[in-house]
């Protein structure tokens, strides 16, 4: 993982939702939401939660124009063998929405983040 600073842009989604602090808050709440969901938690049975937490922060930061570069395994590799169903994926999205709400994002900010997350679905489900 490599972090580097760069000049902030006014239309930058990362900055507009509150930057590093907000992304970390989303990750904290997301981990809580997953821990409290009896279906989704089963996917994390063999996972290192701290590692997931850190990777999630870096990945989210990188896809919403933040000053981070995600250098972990690509999402297809990360989810290989988990055979995540479409229904459970949508359930995880609901948990992420809850986490973003808990972190103080408005409805419109949540939609903008989801728009960045949505293209990764095909790398996550059914393999």
């Amino acid at each position: 993982m490599l972090m580097f600073g760069c000049a902030s842009q006014p239309s930058n989604l990362y900055n507009s939702i509150g930057g590093k602090q907000t992304v970390e808050k989303i990750a904290d709440h997301f981990v809580d939401e997953i821990g409290n969901d009896k279906i989704i938690i089963t996917y994390f049975a063999k996972s290192n939660v701290d590692r997931f937490h850190q990777s999630f922060i870096t990945h989210l930061c990188s896809i919403i124009d933040g000053p981070c570069k995600y250098e972990g395994d690509n999402l297809r590799e990360v989810h290989r063998g988990m055979n995540i169903t479409e229904g459970d994926f949508n359930r995880i999205v609901d948990l992420l929405i809850n986490a973003m709400r808990a972190a103080g994002l408005t409805h419109r900010e949540r939609n903008r983040v989801l728009a960045r997350v949505a293209p990764f679905r095909k790398e996550i489900i059914y393999h």
């Binding site: 939609n111 903008r112 989801l114």
Partner: peptide
């Protein structure tokens, strides 16, 4: 559906 496409609304 276009997420967040119109002033952040879906």
């Amino acid at each position: 559906v276009h997420l967040g496409a119109v002033f952040g609304f879906n």
